[in-house]
Amino acid sequence: MVHKKVHLPEKICPVCKRPFSWRKRWEKNWSEVVYCSRACAHSAKKLRRQQSNR
């Protein structure tokens, strides 16, 4: 049996530095996806706010 999801595109999350794979829900906006999860997106937003307040 051949695994179908072997050749999915991947990106590296800039927050946690882990690779994450393409998901069906990102089909229409894969080029705009930056973070692997909402938690990483929230962390990045929080970090940007802290840096701009300095």
Rank of each mutant, 00 (worst) to 15 (best):
K46W: 12
P9K: 12
C16T: 05
A39I: 03
S43W: 12
Q51H: 10
V33P: 03
K24L: 11
K45L: 10
E32W: 01
R49T: 15
V6T: 11
S21M: 00
V33D: 07
K45Q: 08
W30Y: 06
K5A: 00
C40D: 10
S21G: 01
E32P: 02
E32Y: 01
R25A: 06
C40Y: 07
R23E: 06
C40T: 05
K11G: 04
C36W: 04
Y35F: 13
P19V: 05
A39L: 09
V34L: 09
S37C: 10
K17V: 04
N29Q: 09
P19Y: 03
W22E: 10
S43G: 15
A44Y: 10
K46N: 14
C40A: 02
F20W: 07
S52P: 00
P9L: 03
K5W: 00
K11H: 04
V2D: 12
Y35N: 11
R18H: 11
A41C: 02
N29R: 14
V6A: 12
K11Q: 05
P14H: 01
K4L: 08
C16N: 08
W22A: 15
C40Q: 04
S21E: 00
R25M: 11
R38W: 02
W26V: 06
K45D: 14
Q51C: 07
V33G: 06
S43N: 15
S31H: 04
E32F: 02
L47M: 14
A39K: 09
R18K: 13
P9C: 04
V2P: 14
L8N: 08
E10N: 07
K4Y: 09
W26E: 14
P19D: 06
V33T: 06
E32M: 08
R38T: 05
C36S: 10
A41I: 00
V33R: 08
A41G: 07
K5E: 01
R49S: 15
A44V: 04
W30G: 14
K11E: 09
V6F: 13
P14Y: 01
V33Q: 06
P19N: 11
V34I: 10
Y35T: 03
I12N: 03
S43P: 09
M1N: 15
S52N: 08
K28D: 04
R18C: 09
N53Q: 13
H3C: 03
S52V: 09
N53M: 12
S37N: 10
A39E: 13
R23F: 00
H3E: 10
H42S: 13
A39G: 13
R18E: 14
E10F: 02
K4V: 02
L47C: 11
R38D: 09
H7M: 04
H42M: 11
V33C: 07
N53Y: 01
S43E: 14
K46G: 12
E10C: 06
E32V: 01
I12P: 08
R38E: 10
E27W: 05
K28Q: 11
R48M: 09
F20V: 08
S43L: 14
R25L: 10
V6N: 11
W26P: 06
W26H: 15
K5T: 00
K5D: 00
V33W: 01
A39D: 14
P14N: 03
